[in-house]
Simulated scan of single mutants.
Amino acid sequence: MIEPNAKADPPKADLLRYLQSARDALLWKLDGLSEYDVRRPLTPTGTNLLGLIKHVAGVEIGYFGETFGRPFFDAARVPAWYAEDAEANADMWATADESREEIVGLYRRAWEHTEATVAALPLDATGRVAWWHEDRNEVTLHRILVHVIADTTRHAGHADVVRELVDGTVGMQQGNDNMPPGDRAWWAAYRDRVEDAARKADNG
């Protein structure tokens, strides 16, 4: 939900609209899948759907929290995966004890925190990204919104590919798949044409 102050500011509303579109696309990729399928790694580097959600939740919590002096977590309740001394990639996968509902719920609460920060501050408000190099870590809210939109959209693209690998489901948004029409036979023939062109190009 976009806060009233953000709605009254067209540039803020535009930025939040693009961010929400990417958020919704990511969550949609979980629909209809088993616990195993939302968690299983589908690339050599372990990319998985629920891990992507956990990661982008942490991204919003950090960039719209600590960066602008508006921390999301109570200092005594920072989860192990988010702590400074967390193991590598702890935010990119879900443990067996972390439920889908818990991670999705955290992401939705992060949205509320983001939107409260955006409503409370002007786009030229400055903050500091502690984990960026000191020669570029002073930022504006506008820059961080653009950065997080780009990051979330990139991960939505990862989710597109992972979901297709899980069960063949494709599409950009629920109700708007943004795909050309075609049944399985059409897509199989299309893929064969692409493969044939690649082999011909490789053979010179």
Rank of each mutant, 00 (worst) to 15 (best):
E3W: 03
P4C: 11
N5S: 15
D9F: 13
D9Q: 08
P11L: 03
R17L: 09
Y18I: 06
L19V: 03
L19M: 11
D24V: 02
L27F: 14
L27K: 03
L27D: 07
L27V: 07
W28K: 01
L30C: 01
G32V: 05
L33V: 07
L33G: 02
S34G: 13
P41S: 15
L50D: 02
G51I: 01
L52A: 09
K54Y: 04
A57C: 12
G58T: 10
V59C: 15
Y63G: 06
G65K: 02
E66P: 04
T67N: 04
F68E: 04
P71C: 05
F73G: 07
D74V: 00
A75G: 08
R77A: 15
P79G: 08
A80L: 05
A88Y: 14
A90W: 04
W93L: 09
E98A: 13
E101R: 02
E101M: 00
E101C: 03
E102A: 13
V104L: 08
G105Q: 01
Y107E: 03
R109T: 13
R109S: 15
A110C: 02
A110M: 13
W111R: 12
L121I: 08
D124C: 01
T126R: 07
A130P: 00
W131H: 12
R143I: 00
I144H: 01
I144V: 12
L145G: 01
I149L: 15
H158G: 08
H158D: 15
E164D: 06
E164M: 00
Q173E: 12
D177S: 05
D177T: 07
P181D: 13
G182P: 02
W187M: 06
A188D: 06
A188K: 06
Y190S: 04
R191E: 03
D192V: 00
R193N: 03
A198E: 03
R199T: 01
K200E: 15
K200D: 15
G204F: 14
